[in-house]
């Protein structure tokens, strides 16, 4: 079993000014003693995109709400952009630094028109109506919302357009940290592509709670795996999400892009081509018996998963998971083994 670690990055190695989120030993219980978070600790650096993945009821939304100060609690220490959300005085300044996009855009949109909804945040931050209007127009343009619809009631928009407006509402506030709760929900594939493109262009730090692991692969560099309120793993996104056993143990699946390639690689290497790797049990440890998993993943209370570096078909010396996104020629496979 790997040693427990506090986040994938050692907080002591990062200057305090570079950290936008510091969470230490955070726990949360709802009334009725339903435990939502248990001793969660991690940090997020400025300009870092971090995914928060986990099954339903893992505590992802609770964690985001604790970070915004919306959900009060006492156990644990949180610092977000230098503010303590538990302190009522400091919490008043949090909206200047933190923007949250809620899971359901209907919860976020309430103004009579799209433009007024997007300008709501800047007005509350103290901008003049003219400045707020300019910010709102710019934010709506950034998310690709047509200007001719600025006066429409937000509730009459489609799900994708509502999501755009919700994003624009936060974008207009220009926060240093984005908290996004299931940002891909309600979006069709095109809307999802546009969302990914937008998120990749935003330079600010982002903490994205989602089940959409493909989106995570596209946007995030680091993943936190939560389950039953506990932080299970923290590491580079491609390594956490390629760990099939780890994900399966916590109600997730390897994303199609990673899993598909691993399956294909397994089919090719283990049975058909003759580039037979050692059996999986042996592959998980190196010759000297050390754990072969990436040292960048920190796991807590989870047995090591059999992350097998499988040879690439075209470059047998290179592990399959490290390959780029070049398509695999499935026609070269035997018919009965095609995925």
């Amino acid at each position: 079993m790997m040693a427990a670690a506090e986040g994938g990055h050692d907080p002591s190695a990062t200057p305090a000014t570079d950290l936008v989120v510091q969470v230490r030993h955070l726990s949360h219980c709802y009334r009725g003693h339903l435990t939502a978070l248990v001793d969660v600790s991690f940090t997020v650096r400025a300009n870092e995109n971090v995914a928060l993945v986990g099954p339903n009821g893992a505590g992802k939304t609770t964690l985001l709400l604790r970070l915004t100060g919306i959900l009060p609690g006492e156990r644990g220490q949180i610092t977000v952009c230098g503010y303590d959300p538990a302190d009522p005085v400091q919490r008043r300044f949090l909206p200047r630094a933190v923007g949250m996009v809620f899971q359901n855009p209907d919860d976020q949109l309430f103004a009579p028109s799209v433009l007024e909804d997007v300008a709501f945040g800047p007005l509350n931050l103290g901008f003049s109506p003219e400045e707020a209007r300019q910010r709102a127009v710019a934010a709506l343009a950034a998310v690709g919302f047509p200007p001719c619809w600025h006066d429409r009631p937000p509730l009459q928009l489609s799900g994708g357009d509502k999501r755009r407006v919700a994003l624009a509402g936060v974008l207009a506030m220009q926060p240093r940290l984005w908290l996004l709760d299931e940002p891909g929900a309600f979006l069709d594939p095109r809307g999802r592509r546009e969302l990914i493109r937008l998120l990749r262009t935003l330079p600010q730090a982002k903490l994205i709670a989602t089940h959409d692991l493909e989106l995570v692969l596209e946007v995030c560099s680091r993943a936190l795996l939560l389950d039953a309120g506990r932080l299970i793993a923290d590491g580079p996104v491609r390594q956490v999400l390629a760990d099939a056993a780890l994900l399966e143990a916590h109600g997730l699946e390897v994303p199609y892009r990673l899993g598909h390639r691993a399956d294909v690689a397994r089919v090719i290497t283990s049975e058909n081509i003759g580039l037979l790797p050692p059996p999986e049990r042996e592959a998980t440890t190196s010759h000297n018996g050390a754990d072969n998993r990436s040292p960048d993943i920190s796991c807590i209370d989870v047995p090591p998963a059999p992350t097998v570096p499988r040879p690439d078909r075209h470059h047998p010396t290179r592990p399959a998971d490290d390959r780029d996104n070049t398509p695999i020629d499935v026609t070269a496979l035997p018919p009965e083994k095609q995925p």
């Binding site: 949250m100 709501f120 936060v170």
Partner: peptide, 13 residues
């Protein structure tokens, strides 16, 4: 409750 939370997140006082 969710709408109120979203409003507070955007600085509503």
């Amino acid at each position: 409750e969710r709408v109120a939370a979203a409003m507070r997140c955007r600085g509503f006082q």
